[in-house]
Amino acid sequence: MVPEEVMKAVFPLLEGIDLASCMVVCKQWRDLARDDYFWKCLCAKKWPSLCKRPNPSILSYYKTLLPPRISFDDLEFFIDIWAENRLLFSEVVSGSVLQQGIKIPQSGVCEMLKYHMQGADFKMTLPVEPKFTIPSIQTETVSASVLVGRKDSNKVARIINKSMFEYIDRSSYRALAFEYLDISPAYPFVSGIRAWISLLFMEDGNEGAMDVFGIQVDFCDVANSKEEVLWLLDMLDWK
């Protein structure tokens, strides 16, 4: 664990892309690197006049300096859900659709799950229509694979690779699986970051089977905004 005093001395010396990369190392680095002081130092290097107003109108230097190099419009996601060797769901979804999410949950969705789905642009959610049913995980293994593709370069990167839904949170009606991301060798200090995929469901009353009405992907360990998700995706090992 690097002492916080050392990071506070080093972070003001970094370029914007390097400081953004530090934000996905771990929660401690993310919280520290989001300090507006470091981003003000970067703004002062590039646009000194921006920092000279006695009462600056900019509320956050962090949000001003470094827009992501990719957008959700540049991306498409390949999502496959399996029960053993049986394909339950297979779709190619544009990044803009996945980021838009589910605006109005359908009737029958529990209040805790509605709360989980609200107001978080770092959670990428896809409505599933028609719904599909997954069996009880005690009787069949259910797994997911997710790839992301870049339209500008025709390259792809892996997010989830046949990860099993081994945890069912019946209090919020979610089945969860995760995978550790493959980060580009250009970022050797970034590792151990998990991608999460959740199946959003309602009980169908049939021996623990679940009716899935939505699929959600997020990186909530380190990315808690739309911009942070895009920075993280940009650092994947694209091939």
Rank of each mutant, 00 (worst) to 15 (best):
F213E: 05
N206W: 11
F213Q: 06
L200Q: 07
I215H: 12
A177Q: 03
N224Y: 02
K155T: 12
K226Q: 15
L176I: 14
V190I: 15
R150C: 02
S191K: 10
G149A: 15
R174S: 09
C220Q: 13
F219R: 00
F178T: 06
D169G: 01
I168F: 02
A157L: 02
N161P: 00
V146H: 00
A223N: 00
Y187K: 07
V146C: 04
E179R: 02
A223H: 02
D218L: 05
A223S: 14
R174P: 05
A157T: 01
A175M: 11
K155D: 03
S191L: 02
E203F: 14
D169L: 03
F189K: 05
N224R: 08
M210Y: 09
F201A: 03
A186G: 01
Y180N: 10
I159N: 06
E166Q: 09
E203N: 15
W196S: 08
N161A: 13
I168N: 09
Y173C: 15
N154R: 08
Y187E: 00
L176P: 01
V190F: 00
V222S: 02
V156S: 04
Y187S: 04
V222G: 06
Y173K: 03
G149F: 09
R158K: 10
K226F: 02
S198A: 12
P185G: 11
K162D: 15
L199P: 08
I183M: 13
Y167I: 12
C220G: 10
S184C: 07
G208K: 15
G149C: 13
D204L: 09
D221V: 08
Y180S: 06
D211S: 15
M164I: 13
A157V: 03
D169I: 11
V212C: 08
F178C: 12
A223C: 00
W196L: 08
D221C: 03
L199C: 13
S172E: 09
A186F: 01
A186S: 13
P185F: 10
I168C: 11
L176F: 11
R194F: 12
Y167H: 14
D221L: 02
D152P: 00
V148E: 01
A175N: 09
K155H: 10
M202E: 14
D211W: 01
P188M: 01
A177M: 09
C220L: 11
L176C: 13
Y180K: 08
Y173T: 06
F201K: 08
G149D: 04
I183P: 10
L147C: 03
